[in-house]
């Protein structure tokens, strides 16, 4: 068990029960959610738009792939080096042929009939069947 696993336990359990107190959490929960009525007076929402972009939109691109590569390369799998390499070199160029893939939630719902008690033990699906963007059930 990693040290991370221990420190994230709340109240003796493995299920985290965070109280959403941070701005990003609250925005994530309430923004764009709720009944819209015609009779309202439009009021300006200072700063919300920028935060929305930060939270909701991730375009997979060269930039995104580099983030994955960097996260991978920070791993110290072989117990030598690795962690000191990241002296941040800026000047990231995004002009390349950015393949767009959906950053949205993807997941093929598997037709498990057992309810998953045993299957949840160590789900290691290496071969998910479908790569289509999930639309149903959403």
């Amino acid at each position: 068990m990693s040290s991370q696993a221990l420190e994230r336990r709340n109240s003796g359990g493995y299920l985290g029960r965070p109280t959403p107190s941070g701005l990003a959490d609250v925005i994530d929960i309430i923004l764009d959610k709720g009944l819209v009525i015609d009779a309202y007076i439009r009021v300006s929402l200072v700063g919300i738009e920028l935060l929305t972009i930060d939270l909701r939109i991730v375009i997979a691109s060269v930039d995104t792939y580099l983030r994955f590569a960097e996260a991978t390369n920070r791993l110290d799998l072989y117990e030598h080096g690795g962690k000191d390499l990241g002296e941040a070199i800026g000047d990231l160029q995004q002009g390349g042929a950015a393949k767009k893939v959906s950053g949205a939630v993807q997941g093929a719902k598997k037709a498990l009939t057992s309810g998953g008690d045993d299957d949840e033990e160590r789900p290691r699906p290496r071969k998910a069947a479908s790569r289509r963007r999930q639309q149903e059930d959403a």
Binding site: V62, Y65, F68, T72, E87, G107, R124, P125
Partner: peptide, 29 residues
Amino acid sequence: EGTPHPDAVRLGQLVSEALTLQRHGDSGL
């Protein structure tokens, strides 16, 4: 880090795709 070397981009792309597959399965479960 931050250098758009073709190998690094390719690595990130493959890792991203591998994680997407895992995500499909794990979120479904």
